[in-house]
Simulated assay, not measured.
Amino acid sequence: MSILDRFTLTDHVAVVTGAGRGIGAATAVALAEAGADVVLSSRTEGQLDEVAHRVEDTGRTAVVVPADLSDTEAVAALAQRAYDEFGRLDVVVNNVGGTIPNAFLDTDVAYLEESFHFNVSTAHALTRAAVPLMLASAGTPDAPRQKSVTSISSMMGRSPGRGYLAYGTAKAALAHWSRLAATDLAPQVRVNGVYVGSVMTSALEFVAGVPETRQQMEGATPLGHIGEAEDIAAAVLYLASPAGKYLTGKMLEVDGGLLQPNLDLGLPDLEPTSDS
């Protein structure tokens, strides 16, 4: 067997959330290129259809499920949809998430809780629904199929940065959720994650599209450039495929070498107020 054979997912079935663009879209296509059929979900059906065409161009099958993935019932239902369509479920990629940066005093409790819900509760809902179906399609004793869950965190989940309190807290929670879930689900299901650095997606383009800002970000990144969605997709494929079969409870740092944020939001210091 060639070492490259370990990176294949022939006839596996995957669910990818936030699959309409960016990291989710690139990951769905990568898994299909490795041999998997994919259930794609995000809010915008038109974007999903475009990704589905790319999946089908690889010779695999794509199932499009438009949904509001902040709804934990909707995201959990994706697991059963995959099982109903293909008779099995092997790979889950918890990619949906994100939170707009905010100053500390503008980050109220509701905003913090919303960030946690969108980044962590959704991942838990889908994974909890998926695990029984994964165990029901575990293969045979002679040909077992190891199952995997990969969650997309952020380097802000391990590094401090002004303005990222809600987002960074949620992504830190997602990373530790992955470690704890890995302990609960071993050895049947492997659970890992990716600490993502700055990646050129539509979510980043509104700032990195400004030449001066992009130059600042690249200059603050040890590798000297912003990442591509395919960089993260390659990491997910490694974690999801037999190539990563000896990893669980781990977080890969795919961030260009960042030790701190490479984007200064320009939030000022707090000013003391007079009590007179």
Score class of each variant (00 low, 15 high):
R214A: 04
R214C: 04
T213C: 01
A229F: 07
G219M: 09
F206S: 15
M217H: 03
E228Q: 14
E230S: 15
F206C: 02
A235T: 10
T221C: 02
A235D: 10
E205K: 06
E230V: 14
H225D: 03
A208K: 00
V236D: 00
H225Q: 12
Q215E: 15
G224N: 11
F206M: 08
E228A: 13
H225E: 07
H225L: 06
E228N: 06
A233M: 07
I232L: 04
A220K: 13
A203T: 13
A203N: 12
E230Y: 03
D231K: 09
V210C: 02
L204P: 00
E205T: 04
A220V: 05
A203P: 00
A203G: 15
Q216Y: 04
E230C: 02
P222L: 11
A208N: 10
L204Q: 13
E205Y: 01
A208T: 15
A235M: 02
A229S: 15
A235S: 12
L204Y: 03
T213W: 06
M217Y: 02
G227E: 13
A234Q: 08
E218R: 09
E205P: 02
F206A: 14
F206D: 05
A234C: 01
E230R: 13
Q215N: 06
V210G: 01
A233H: 12
V207K: 11
V207P: 02
L223W: 14
L223D: 15
G224K: 07
R214G: 02
Q215H: 09
F206Y: 12
A208L: 15
E212Y: 03
A229P: 14
G224T: 08
M217W: 03
G224I: 10
H225Y: 13
G224W: 09
E205G: 00
V210Q: 14
G227F: 06
T213S: 05
S202H: 12
D231N: 15
T213Q: 08
I226L: 15
A208Q: 04
G224C: 09
E228P: 00
A233Q: 09
G209R: 14
E212I: 11
F206G: 03
T221S: 07
A233N: 12
G227M: 14
E228R: 11
D231M: 11
E212F: 06
E228W: 01
Q215S: 13
T213M: 10
S202C: 00
I226H: 09
D231G: 15
E212Q: 13
A220W: 04
T213D: 03
G227N: 12
I232F: 01
S202L: 12
T213V: 15
Q216H: 07
H225P: 00
L204E: 05
A233Y: 01
P211G: 11
L204S: 07
S202Y: 05
M217G: 06
A203D: 10
L223Y: 15
E230N: 07
G227P: 11
V207Y: 08
L204N: 14
E228Y: 03
A229Q: 11
G209F: 14
A220G: 07
T213E: 10
G227W: 08
Q215V: 09
G209V: 05
D231S: 14
V210N: 13
A234G: 05
S202W: 04
A229N: 12
V207I: 14
V210W: 13
A203M: 09
M217F: 04
A220C: 05
P222M: 14
H225A: 11
R214D: 05
G209S: 14
L223A: 06
H225F: 10
